[in-house]
Design a protein around this nucleic acid. Structure first.
Lengths: 107, 107
DNA sequence: AACACTATCTTGTTTTACAAAGTAGTTGAC
DNA sequence: GTCAACTACTTTGTAAAACAAGATAGTGTT
């Protein structure tokens, strides 16, 4: 994956990161992203990404009853998703170092 | 600008960063991006961004003769572009901290 | 019943990514 | 002198993505 593809893949990677910390569902992921400092990540943004991640085989999901409210779709990483998350971390490392070198006046 | 808008604006910010270091032109920016570790940033990616940045009033350009080869379109930041670059740096700081907290297992 | 909160999905518009091809000047090799 | 290689910018076309907004639906409170 090239740098520019990387730019688009950050939300994907962040969702993989959240799911890697333990089974969770879409609505909760939005709340967690806010805790981590991401602002304005709305439902219209993340649900389509979750569907794509599942289509690509990186996550799988099961519906479970909620103690209150409608059923929740819980997501977990597949082995392929764990691998993808690992690769995301490396790409992120490389990208953020490049951007930091650039904006922090080095070179 | 929200986090998700931020995700799309990284290439824009990086181009502002490069131009802020001194007058330069598209073809040279691609070479510089490579030096900073960005891979596969092609002409089809950056020229449209440069046109948009100019349309938004963040950069201005002048054509100059090249000592060899076709004329070059040299870009510089406008005051509005300097301000935008400053805001980009703040947004980048905030985003990269969020992503790092997330992938580096904190919280 | 009306409202608020939880939870997911779909739709429709706008924007973006970017490969590919087009145009054009310069340089060096043969 | 022409062929290839490099420099340099633009345009075009397709595919994908972003995301606000709305649809749907269950639960809890007033």
């Amino acid at each position: 994956m090239s740098s520019s593809q990387m730019l688009k893949g950050i939300l994907d990677g962040c969702l993989l990161a959240i799911i890697s910390k333990g089974e969770t569902y879409g609505y909760e992921m939005i709340e967690k992203l806010e805790l981590y400092g991401f602002r304005m990540v709305s439902e219209g943004s993340i649900y389509p990404v979750l569907l794509r991640l599942q289509k690509e085989g990186f996550v799988k999901s099961v519906m479970k009853e909620s103690p209150s409210g409608p059923k929740r779709k819980y997501y977990t990483l597949t082995p392929s998703g764990e691998n993808e998350f690992h690769e995301f971390k490396e790409r992120w490392e490389s990208l953020s170092e490049s951007v930091n070198r650039l904006v922090k006046e080095e070179i």
